[in-house]
Design a protein around this nucleic acid. Structure first.
Length: 428
RNA sequence: GGAGACGUCGCAUAGUUCGGCCUAGUGCACCACCCUGCUAAGGUGGAGAACCCUUUAUUGGGUUCCGUGGGUUCAAAUCCCACCGUCUCCGCCA
Protein backbone atom coordinates (compact mmCIF):
# COMPACT_ATOMS: atom_id res chain seq x y z
CA UNK A 1 0.00 0.00 0.00
CA UNK A 2 2.53 2.57 1.09
CA UNK A 3 5.65 1.08 -0.38
CA UNK A 4 8.29 3.67 -0.74
CA UNK A 5 9.93 3.03 -4.03
CA UNK A 6 7.72 3.21 -7.08
CA UNK A 7 6.29 -0.31 -7.56
CA UNK A 8 5.93 0.29 -11.28
CA UNK A 9 9.59 1.25 -11.53
CA UNK A 10 10.50 -1.86 -9.57
CA UNK A 11 8.49 -4.05 -11.93
CA UNK A 12 9.54 -2.42 -15.17
CA UNK A 13 13.14 -1.43 -14.45
CA UNK A 14 14.49 -3.74 -11.77
CA UNK A 15 18.01 -3.24 -13.13
CA UNK A 16 17.86 0.46 -12.35
CA UNK A 17 16.85 -0.32 -8.79
CA UNK A 18 19.61 -2.91 -8.49
CA UNK A 19 22.20 -0.46 -9.79
CA UNK A 20 21.17 2.03 -7.13
CA UNK A 21 21.29 -0.56 -4.36
CA UNK A 22 24.74 -1.60 -5.54
CA UNK A 23 26.01 2.00 -5.51
CA UNK A 24 24.87 2.31 -1.92
CA UNK A 25 26.47 -0.94 -0.92
CA UNK A 26 23.00 -2.21 0.02
CA UNK A 27 21.36 -5.52 -0.74
CA UNK A 28 20.84 -6.18 -4.44
CA UNK A 29 19.06 -9.47 -3.80
CA UNK A 30 16.33 -7.52 -2.03
CA UNK A 31 15.13 -6.35 -5.44
CA UNK A 32 14.46 -9.90 -6.61
CA UNK A 33 12.77 -10.75 -3.34
CA UNK A 34 10.51 -7.72 -3.75
CA UNK A 35 9.73 -8.64 -7.34
CA UNK A 36 8.68 -12.13 -6.32
CA UNK A 37 6.58 -10.71 -3.50
CA UNK A 38 4.92 -8.35 -5.95
CA UNK A 39 3.98 -11.20 -8.28
CA UNK A 40 2.58 -13.18 -5.39
CA UNK A 41 0.66 -10.20 -4.11
CA UNK A 42 -1.01 -9.53 -7.43
CA UNK A 43 -2.04 -13.15 -7.85
CA UNK A 44 -3.55 -13.15 -4.37
CA UNK A 45 -5.43 -9.93 -5.03
CA UNK A 46 -6.83 -11.26 -8.28
CA UNK A 47 -8.05 -14.43 -6.61
CA UNK A 48 -9.72 -12.52 -3.83
CA UNK A 49 -11.39 -10.01 -6.11
CA UNK A 50 -12.88 -12.69 -8.33
CA UNK A 51 -14.29 -14.53 -5.35
CA UNK A 52 -15.64 -11.33 -3.88
CA UNK A 53 -17.38 -10.46 -7.16
CA UNK A 54 -19.02 -13.88 -7.06
CA UNK A 55 -20.11 -13.30 -3.49
CA UNK A 56 -21.59 -9.91 -4.29
CA UNK A 57 -23.76 -11.36 -7.03
CA UNK A 58 -24.81 -14.22 -4.80
CA UNK A 59 -25.69 -11.92 -1.93
CA UNK A 60 -28.20 -10.12 -4.14
CA UNK A 61 -29.88 -13.43 -4.99
CA UNK A 62 -30.16 -14.26 -1.30
CA UNK A 63 -31.72 -10.92 -0.53
CA UNK A 64 -34.23 -11.21 -3.37
CA UNK A 65 -35.12 -14.86 -2.84
CA UNK A 66 -38.54 -15.92 -1.55
CA UNK A 67 -38.57 -17.10 2.01
CA UNK A 68 -38.73 -20.83 1.42
CA UNK A 69 -35.63 -20.80 -0.81
CA UNK A 70 -33.64 -18.55 1.42
CA UNK A 71 -32.47 -21.19 3.83
CA UNK A 72 -30.78 -23.32 1.18
CA UNK A 73 -29.17 -20.26 -0.42
CA UNK A 74 -27.79 -19.05 2.88
CA UNK A 75 -26.16 -22.41 3.44
CA UNK A 76 -24.42 -22.12 0.07
CA UNK A 77 -23.44 -18.54 0.80
CA UNK A 78 -21.81 -19.60 4.04
CA UNK A 79 -19.49 -21.90 2.19
CA UNK A 80 -18.61 -19.15 -0.29
CA UNK A 81 -18.06 -16.66 2.52
CA UNK A 82 -15.51 -19.00 4.05
CA UNK A 83 -13.53 -19.09 0.83
CA UNK A 84 -13.74 -15.32 0.42
CA UNK A 85 -12.43 -14.81 3.93
CA UNK A 86 -9.49 -17.11 3.36
CA UNK A 87 -8.65 -15.43 0.05
CA UNK A 88 -8.93 -12.02 1.68
CA UNK A 89 -6.49 -13.07 4.36
CA UNK A 90 -4.05 -14.36 1.77
CA UNK A 91 -4.28 -11.10 -0.17
CA UNK A 92 -3.65 -9.04 2.96
CA UNK A 93 -0.70 -11.19 3.96
CA UNK A 94 0.82 -10.99 0.49
CA UNK A 95 0.32 -7.24 0.44
CA UNK A 96 2.05 -6.85 3.80
CA UNK A 97 4.90 -9.12 2.78
CA UNK A 98 5.49 -7.03 -0.32
CA UNK A 99 5.30 -3.74 1.54
CA UNK A 100 7.74 -4.91 4.15
CA UNK A 101 10.27 -5.92 1.53
CA UNK A 102 9.75 -2.90 -0.70
CA UNK A 103 10.21 -0.56 2.24
CA UNK A 104 13.71 -1.86 2.74
CA UNK A 105 14.73 -0.78 -0.73
CA UNK A 106 16.25 2.67 -0.55
CA UNK A 107 15.67 5.63 -2.82
CA UNK A 108 17.08 5.48 -6.31
CA UNK A 109 20.37 7.34 -6.30
CA UNK A 110 20.69 10.11 -8.87
CA UNK A 111 23.26 9.63 -11.63
CA UNK A 112 26.52 11.28 -10.75
CA UNK A 113 26.41 10.62 -7.01
CA UNK A 114 29.76 9.15 -5.99
CA UNK A 115 29.67 5.46 -5.13
CA UNK A 116 30.93 4.09 -1.85
CA UNK A 117 30.76 4.97 1.82
CA UNK A 118 31.27 7.91 4.14
CA UNK A 119 34.88 8.60 3.06
CA UNK A 120 34.08 8.50 -0.66
CA UNK A 121 32.46 11.93 -0.85
CA UNK A 122 33.51 14.28 -3.64
CA UNK A 123 34.45 17.86 -2.83
CA UNK A 124 32.62 20.10 -5.28
CA UNK A 125 34.32 23.34 -4.26
CA UNK A 126 36.14 25.12 -1.48
CA UNK A 127 35.10 28.70 -0.83
CA UNK A 128 36.93 31.41 1.10
CA UNK A 129 40.43 31.41 2.49
CA UNK A 130 41.32 29.64 5.68
CA UNK A 131 42.05 32.25 8.32
CA UNK A 132 45.66 32.68 9.36
CA UNK A 133 46.34 34.04 12.83
CA UNK A 134 49.45 35.78 14.05
CA UNK A 135 48.61 34.59 17.53
CA UNK A 136 47.62 31.28 19.07
CA UNK A 137 43.94 30.90 18.15
CA UNK A 138 41.56 29.81 20.88
CA UNK A 139 38.93 27.15 20.38
CA UNK A 140 35.23 27.94 20.64
CA UNK A 141 35.01 26.73 24.24
CA UNK A 142 37.74 29.07 25.46
CA UNK A 143 36.23 31.93 23.51
CA UNK A 144 32.66 31.23 24.52
CA UNK A 145 33.45 30.84 28.19
CA UNK A 146 35.72 33.86 28.44
CA UNK A 147 33.14 35.97 26.62
CA UNK A 148 30.41 34.49 28.86
CA UNK A 149 28.45 33.28 25.85
CA UNK A 150 27.67 29.84 27.14
CA UNK A 151 27.87 27.92 30.37
CA UNK A 152 28.70 24.27 29.95
CA UNK A 153 29.24 23.42 33.62
CA UNK A 154 25.83 24.62 34.65
CA UNK A 155 24.29 22.94 31.62
CA UNK A 156 25.72 19.65 32.87
CA UNK A 157 24.62 20.38 36.42
CA UNK A 158 21.04 20.99 35.38
CA UNK A 159 20.60 18.47 32.58
CA UNK A 160 23.72 16.33 32.19
CA UNK A 161 26.42 15.90 29.60
CA UNK A 162 25.98 17.58 26.21
CA UNK A 163 23.64 20.21 27.63
CA UNK A 164 24.52 23.88 27.97
CA UNK A 165 23.14 27.32 28.64
CA UNK A 166 23.55 30.00 26.02
CA UNK A 167 24.15 33.14 28.03
CA UNK A 168 24.38 36.84 27.27
CA UNK A 169 25.86 37.41 23.84
CA UNK A 170 25.65 33.69 23.14
CA UNK A 171 21.88 33.78 23.47
CA UNK A 172 21.70 36.99 21.46
CA UNK A 173 23.98 35.66 18.72
CA UNK A 174 21.84 32.56 18.32
CA UNK A 175 18.65 34.60 17.99
CA UNK A 176 20.37 36.95 15.54
CA UNK A 177 21.51 34.03 13.43
CA UNK A 178 18.05 32.50 13.37
CA UNK A 179 16.48 35.83 12.45
CA UNK A 180 18.96 36.45 9.68
CA UNK A 181 18.18 33.00 8.29
CA UNK A 182 14.47 33.59 8.62
CA UNK A 183 14.64 36.90 6.76
CA UNK A 184 16.52 35.25 3.93
CA UNK A 185 14.02 32.42 3.79
CA UNK A 186 11.19 34.95 3.64
CA UNK A 187 12.89 36.78 0.79
CA UNK A 188 13.08 33.48 -1.09
CA UNK A 189 9.37 32.84 -0.67
CA UNK A 190 9.42 30.38 2.23
CA UNK A 191 6.48 30.38 4.62
CA UNK A 192 7.73 30.39 8.21
CA UNK A 193 6.40 27.70 10.52
CA UNK A 194 7.10 27.07 14.17
CA UNK A 195 6.54 23.36 14.38
CA UNK A 196 5.57 20.85 17.05
CA UNK A 197 8.60 19.01 18.41
CA UNK A 198 6.61 16.18 19.93
CA UNK A 199 5.01 13.92 17.36
CA UNK A 200 3.01 10.74 17.30
CA UNK A 201 4.57 7.41 16.33
CA UNK A 202 2.73 7.43 13.00
CA UNK A 203 4.34 10.72 12.03
CA UNK A 204 7.78 9.64 13.15
CA UNK A 205 7.50 6.39 11.25
CA UNK A 206 5.86 7.95 8.20
CA UNK A 207 8.73 10.37 7.80
CA UNK A 208 11.18 7.50 8.01
CA UNK A 209 12.94 8.49 11.21
CA UNK A 210 12.22 5.26 13.04
CA UNK A 211 14.30 3.28 10.58
CA UNK A 212 18.06 3.27 10.68
CA UNK A 213 18.33 6.10 13.24
CA UNK A 214 15.69 4.96 15.70
CA UNK A 215 18.12 4.94 18.62
CA UNK A 216 18.92 8.60 18.00
CA UNK A 217 15.39 9.59 18.92
CA UNK A 218 14.04 10.53 22.33
CA UNK A 219 10.82 8.78 23.25
CA UNK A 220 8.28 9.63 25.96
CA UNK A 221 6.58 6.35 26.86
CA UNK A 222 4.06 7.88 29.26
CA UNK A 223 2.50 9.74 26.34
CA UNK A 224 3.66 7.62 23.41
CA UNK A 225 5.28 10.64 21.75
CA UNK A 226 8.65 11.21 20.11
CA UNK A 227 10.85 14.30 20.38
CA UNK A 228 11.95 15.33 16.93
CA UNK A 229 15.59 15.71 15.98
CA UNK A 230 14.69 18.19 13.25
CA UNK A 231 11.63 20.14 12.18
CA UNK A 232 11.83 18.16 8.95
CA UNK A 233 9.62 15.60 10.67
CA UNK A 234 6.80 18.07 11.22
CA UNK A 235 7.36 19.80 7.89
CA UNK A 236 7.16 16.51 5.99
CA UNK A 237 4.14 15.44 8.01
CA UNK A 238 2.42 18.78 7.41
CA UNK A 239 0.90 17.74 4.07
CA UNK A 240 0.65 14.02 4.83
CA UNK A 241 -2.23 12.42 2.93
CA UNK A 242 -2.99 15.56 0.93
CA UNK A 243 -3.25 16.35 -2.75
CA UNK A 244 -1.32 19.59 -3.22
CA UNK A 245 -2.15 22.25 -5.75
CA UNK A 246 1.04 22.33 -7.77
CA UNK A 247 0.47 23.44 -11.33
CA UNK A 248 2.18 21.01 -13.73
CA UNK A 249 1.58 23.37 -16.64
CA UNK A 250 3.68 26.07 -14.98
CA UNK A 251 7.05 24.33 -14.79
CA UNK A 252 8.74 27.34 -13.25
CA UNK A 253 6.35 27.44 -10.33
CA UNK A 254 8.43 27.34 -7.16
CA UNK A 255 6.25 24.80 -5.40
CA UNK A 256 5.52 25.02 -1.71
CA UNK A 257 8.37 26.25 0.45
CA UNK A 258 8.39 26.19 4.24
CA UNK A 259 10.95 27.39 6.72
CA UNK A 260 10.53 25.55 9.98
CA UNK A 261 12.06 26.80 13.21
CA UNK A 262 12.32 24.42 16.11
CA UNK A 263 14.45 23.12 18.90
CA UNK A 264 15.94 19.76 17.94
CA UNK A 265 16.63 16.84 20.26
CA UNK A 266 19.13 14.08 19.66
CA UNK A 267 20.23 11.25 21.89
CA UNK A 268 23.68 10.99 20.30
CA UNK A 269 23.56 7.37 21.38
CA UNK A 270 26.33 6.17 19.09
CA UNK A 271 28.75 9.00 19.65
CA UNK A 272 30.08 8.51 23.16
CA UNK A 273 33.43 10.20 23.52
CA UNK A 274 33.09 12.03 20.21
CA UNK A 275 33.08 15.85 20.20
CA UNK A 276 32.49 15.97 23.92
CA UNK A 277 33.96 19.43 24.22
CA UNK A 278 31.76 22.49 23.82
CA UNK A 279 28.59 22.89 21.81
CA UNK A 280 29.56 21.09 18.64
CA UNK A 281 27.61 17.93 19.38
CA UNK A 282 24.78 18.41 21.86
CA UNK A 283 21.46 16.87 22.81
CA UNK A 284 19.48 20.02 22.17
CA UNK A 285 19.91 22.86 19.71
CA UNK A 286 17.94 25.20 17.49
CA UNK A 287 17.61 25.02 13.77
CA UNK A 288 15.97 26.81 10.90
CA UNK A 289 15.14 24.24 8.26
CA UNK A 290 14.02 24.73 4.68
CA UNK A 291 11.55 22.28 3.24
CA UNK A 292 10.18 22.20 -0.31
CA UNK A 293 7.39 20.36 -2.05
CA UNK A 294 7.95 20.58 -5.81
CA UNK A 295 7.09 18.86 -9.09
CA UNK A 296 9.37 15.84 -9.56
CA UNK A 297 10.91 17.38 -12.68
CA UNK A 298 11.92 20.46 -10.68
CA UNK A 299 13.56 18.62 -7.82
CA UNK A 300 17.18 18.94 -8.95
CA UNK A 301 16.72 22.62 -9.70
CA UNK A 302 15.23 23.14 -6.25
CA UNK A 303 18.09 21.21 -4.70
CA UNK A 304 20.55 23.61 -6.31
CA UNK A 305 18.49 26.54 -5.03
CA UNK A 306 18.50 25.28 -1.44
CA UNK A 307 22.25 24.81 -1.62
CA UNK A 308 22.69 28.33 -2.94
CA UNK A 309 20.74 29.79 -0.01
CA UNK A 310 22.97 27.88 2.37
CA UNK A 311 26.11 29.08 0.65
CA UNK A 312 24.79 32.63 0.64
CA UNK A 313 24.53 32.53 4.42
CA UNK A 314 27.98 31.01 4.89
CA UNK A 315 29.67 33.45 2.54
CA UNK A 316 28.01 36.50 4.04
CA UNK A 317 28.97 35.36 7.51
CA UNK A 318 32.58 35.27 6.37
CA UNK A 319 33.00 31.55 6.90
CA UNK A 320 35.36 29.36 4.92
CA UNK A 321 33.72 26.19 3.75
CA UNK A 322 33.60 23.37 1.28
CA UNK A 323 30.67 21.72 -0.44
CA UNK A 324 30.66 17.96 -0.66
CA UNK A 325 28.59 15.56 -2.73
CA UNK A 326 27.86 12.83 -0.22
CA UNK A 327 28.56 9.29 -1.41
CA UNK A 328 25.72 6.88 -2.09
CA UNK A 329 26.45 4.66 0.90
CA UNK A 330 26.21 7.60 3.29
CA UNK A 331 22.94 9.04 2.01
CA UNK A 332 20.26 7.72 4.28
CA UNK A 333 17.42 5.75 2.75
CA UNK A 334 15.23 8.66 1.63
CA UNK A 335 17.81 10.80 -0.10
CA UNK A 336 18.62 10.42 -3.78
CA UNK A 337 21.40 13.00 -3.43
CA UNK A 338 22.80 15.00 -0.56
CA UNK A 339 25.09 18.00 -0.41
CA UNK A 340 26.73 18.98 2.85
CA UNK A 341 28.54 22.21 3.51
CA UNK A 342 31.33 22.06 6.03
CA UNK A 343 32.91 25.11 7.60
CA UNK A 344 36.56 25.38 8.44
CA UNK A 345 37.14 25.12 12.19
CA UNK A 346 40.60 26.56 12.91
CA UNK A 347 41.14 24.87 16.28
CA UNK A 348 40.51 21.48 14.72
CA UNK A 349 42.22 22.27 11.42
CA UNK A 350 39.38 20.52 9.67
CA UNK A 351 35.98 21.07 8.06
CA UNK A 352 32.88 20.40 10.15
CA UNK A 353 29.35 19.97 8.81
CA UNK A 354 27.16 23.05 9.15
CA UNK A 355 24.42 22.28 6.68
CA UNK A 356 22.98 19.38 4.79
CA UNK A 357 20.48 19.38 1.96
CA UNK A 358 18.77 16.29 0.63
CA UNK A 359 16.75 15.66 -2.49
CA UNK A 360 14.32 12.91 -1.55
CA UNK A 361 12.70 12.92 -5.00
CA UNK A 362 9.31 11.20 -4.69
CA UNK A 363 10.45 8.61 -2.14
CA UNK A 364 9.40 10.37 1.05
CA UNK A 365 6.21 11.72 -0.52
CA UNK A 366 5.14 8.27 -1.62
CA UNK A 367 5.41 7.06 1.94
CA UNK A 368 3.60 10.13 3.27
CA UNK A 369 1.02 9.98 0.50
CA UNK A 370 1.56 13.60 -0.54
CA UNK A 371 0.52 14.06 -4.14
CA UNK A 372 -0.30 16.57 -6.90
CA UNK A 373 -2.40 16.36 -10.04
CA UNK A 374 -0.64 15.78 -13.32
CA UNK A 375 -1.79 17.43 -16.52
CA UNK A 376 -3.95 14.43 -17.33
CA UNK A 377 -5.65 14.79 -13.95
CA UNK A 378 -4.05 11.74 -12.38
CA UNK A 379 -2.41 11.92 -9.00
CA UNK A 380 1.32 11.37 -8.56
CA UNK A 381 3.70 11.79 -5.64
CA UNK A 382 5.45 15.15 -5.34
CA UNK A 383 9.16 15.55 -4.71
CA UNK A 384 10.37 16.72 -1.30
CA UNK A 385 13.64 18.39 -0.36
CA UNK A 386 15.09 19.74 2.83
CA UNK A 387 18.06 21.77 3.92
CA UNK A 388 19.56 23.51 6.93
CA UNK A 389 19.69 27.29 6.93
CA UNK A 390 21.10 27.90 10.42
CA UNK A 391 21.84 25.96 13.59
CA UNK A 392 23.39 26.55 16.98
CA UNK A 393 26.52 24.81 15.77
CA UNK A 394 27.29 27.73 13.45
CA UNK A 395 28.35 29.67 16.53
CA UNK A 396 31.41 27.42 16.77
CA UNK A 397 32.66 28.39 13.33
CA UNK A 398 31.71 32.05 13.78
CA UNK A 399 33.62 32.46 17.03
CA UNK A 400 36.73 30.69 15.88
CA UNK A 401 36.88 32.32 12.46
CA UNK A 402 36.35 35.88 13.60
CA UNK A 403 38.40 35.87 16.80
CA UNK A 404 41.09 38.44 17.43
CA UNK A 405 44.33 38.41 19.39
CA UNK A 406 42.73 40.14 22.37
CA UNK A 407 40.07 37.46 22.69
CA UNK A 408 37.25 39.52 21.21
CA UNK A 409 35.21 38.38 18.22
CA UNK A 410 34.23 40.52 15.25
CA UNK A 411 30.55 40.27 14.36
CA UNK A 412 29.97 39.80 10.62
CA UNK A 413 28.22 42.81 9.11
CA UNK A 414 25.10 40.92 8.07
CA UNK A 415 24.42 40.02 11.70
CA UNK A 416 24.88 43.49 13.15
CA UNK A 417 21.38 44.75 12.37
CA UNK A 418 20.08 41.87 14.47
CA UNK A 419 22.31 42.84 17.40
CA UNK A 420 21.47 46.49 17.69
CA UNK A 421 24.40 47.48 15.49
CA UNK A 422 26.99 45.84 17.71
CA UNK A 423 30.30 45.17 15.89
CA UNK A 424 32.34 43.30 18.45
CA UNK A 425 31.77 40.67 21.07
CA UNK A 426 33.74 41.53 24.19
CA UNK A 427 33.85 40.05 27.65
CA UNK A 428 31.06 41.64 29.69
C1' G B 1 -8.98 14.34 35.22
C1' G B 2 -14.85 13.65 34.91
C1' A B 3 -19.42 13.68 31.68
C1' G B 4 -21.49 13.88 26.93
C1' A B 5 -22.10 14.66 21.46
C1' C B 6 -20.09 13.85 16.83
C1' G B 7 -16.72 11.98 12.40
C1' U B 8 -20.41 10.04 5.10
C1' C B 9 -16.20 10.14 -1.94
C1' G B 10 -13.63 19.11 -2.37
C1' C B 11 -17.44 21.86 0.98
C1' A B 12 -22.36 21.20 3.16
C1' U B 13 -25.79 17.47 4.11
C1' A B 14 -29.45 12.71 3.56
C1' G B 15 -29.03 7.75 5.01
C1' U B 16 -27.65 4.77 10.89
C1' U B 17 -34.21 3.90 14.46
C1' C B 18 -35.59 -2.06 12.81
C1' G B 19 -28.43 -4.72 8.58
C1' G B 20 -30.20 -6.51 2.26
C1' C B 21 -34.25 -1.79 -2.93
C1' C B 22 -26.95 2.35 -0.93
C1' U B 23 -24.33 0.52 -7.63
C1' A B 24 -23.99 6.00 -0.98
C1' G B 25 -28.96 10.34 -2.67
C1' U B 26 -29.15 15.84 -2.72
C1' G B 27 -27.27 21.04 -2.75
C1' C B 28 -22.94 24.20 -3.58
C1' A B 29 -18.51 24.65 -5.99
C1' C B 30 -16.01 22.46 -10.54
C1' C B 31 -15.54 20.92 -16.11
C1' A B 32 -17.78 20.51 -21.17
C1' C B 33 -21.67 21.68 -24.25
C1' C B 34 -26.58 24.08 -25.17
C1' C B 35 -29.73 28.38 -24.54
C1' U B 36 -30.35 33.57 -23.46
C1' G B 37 -27.29 39.65 -28.10
C1' C B 38 -22.92 40.88 -22.03
C1' U B 39 -23.58 39.32 -16.71
C1' A B 40 -26.89 36.53 -13.72
C1' A B 41 -30.34 32.68 -14.19
C1' G B 42 -31.70 28.07 -16.88
C1' G B 43 -30.89 23.15 -19.58
C1' U B 44 -27.95 18.55 -20.78
C1' G B 45 -24.00 15.68 -19.60
C1' G B 46 -19.49 14.78 -16.82
C1' A B 47 -16.87 14.53 -12.56
C1' G B 48 -13.81 11.16 -5.87
C1' A B 49 -9.48 7.93 -4.18
C1' A B 50 -6.53 3.36 -4.16
C1' C B 51 -5.50 -1.26 -6.19
C1' C B 52 -6.03 -5.54 -9.78
C1' C B 53 -6.97 -7.47 -14.78
C1' U B 54 -7.15 -5.84 -19.88
C1' U B 55 -5.53 -2.36 -23.72
C1' U B 56 -1.65 1.12 -28.55
C1' A B 57 -4.54 4.26 -25.17
C1' U B 58 -6.14 9.11 -20.45
C1' U B 59 -9.80 1.78 -23.47
C1' G B 60 -12.95 -1.60 -21.09
C1' G B 61 -13.98 -4.43 -16.71
C1' G B 62 -13.47 -5.73 -11.49
C1' U B 63 -12.44 -5.02 -6.19
C1' U B 64 -11.99 -1.91 -2.06
C1' C B 65 -12.87 2.85 0.61
C1' C B 66 -18.66 6.13 4.81
C1' G B 67 -12.26 8.79 10.71
C1' U B 68 -8.63 4.16 11.50
C1' G B 69 -8.25 -0.97 12.81
C1' G B 70 -10.64 -5.34 14.41
C1' G B 71 -15.23 -8.32 15.26
C1' U B 72 -20.42 -10.36 14.46
C1' U B 73 -23.20 -11.89 9.81
C1' C B 74 -24.73 -15.36 3.92
C1' A B 75 -24.74 -9.76 3.85
C1' A B 76 -22.33 -3.80 7.64
C1' A B 77 -22.25 3.53 6.38
C1' U B 78 -26.03 0.92 9.59
C1' C B 79 -24.74 -3.80 15.10
C1' C B 80 -20.28 -4.69 18.75
C1' C B 81 -15.07 -3.49 20.52
C1' A B 82 -10.56 -0.63 20.54
C1' C B 83 -7.99 3.51 18.88
C1' C B 84 -7.48 8.52 16.54
C1' G B 85 -9.62 13.24 16.00
C1' U B 86 -13.23 17.34 16.72
C1' C B 87 -16.71 19.90 19.73
C1' U B 88 -19.54 21.07 24.44
C1' C B 89 -19.94 21.23 29.77
C1' C B 90 -17.51 20.54 34.67
C1' G B 91 -12.93 20.36 37.42
C1' C B 92 -7.67 21.58 37.70
C1' C B 93 -3.40 24.43 36.06
C1' A B 94 -1.42 28.56 33.50
Amino acid sequence: MDAVIDPVLLRESPDLVKKSQRARGSSVELVDVALAADTERRAAILEFENLRAEQNVFGKQVAAAPKDEKKALVAQAQELAGRVKAASQRATDAENAFTETARQIQNIVIDGVPEGGEENFVTLREVGTKPVFDFEPRDHVELGESLKMFDLARGAKVSGARFYFLTGMGARLELALMNLALDRALAAGFTPLITPTLVRPETMDGTGFLGEHADEVYYLPADDLFLTGTSEVALAGYHMGEILELDPTAPDAPGLRYAGWSTCYRREAGSHGKDTRGILRVHQFNKLEMFSYVLPENAEKEHAALLSYQEGMLTDLGLTYRVIDVAAGDLGSSAARKFDTEAWVPSQQTYRELTSTSNCTTYQARRLDTRYRTESGKTAPVATLNGTLATTRWIVALLETHQQADGTVVIPEVLRPYLGGLELIEAP
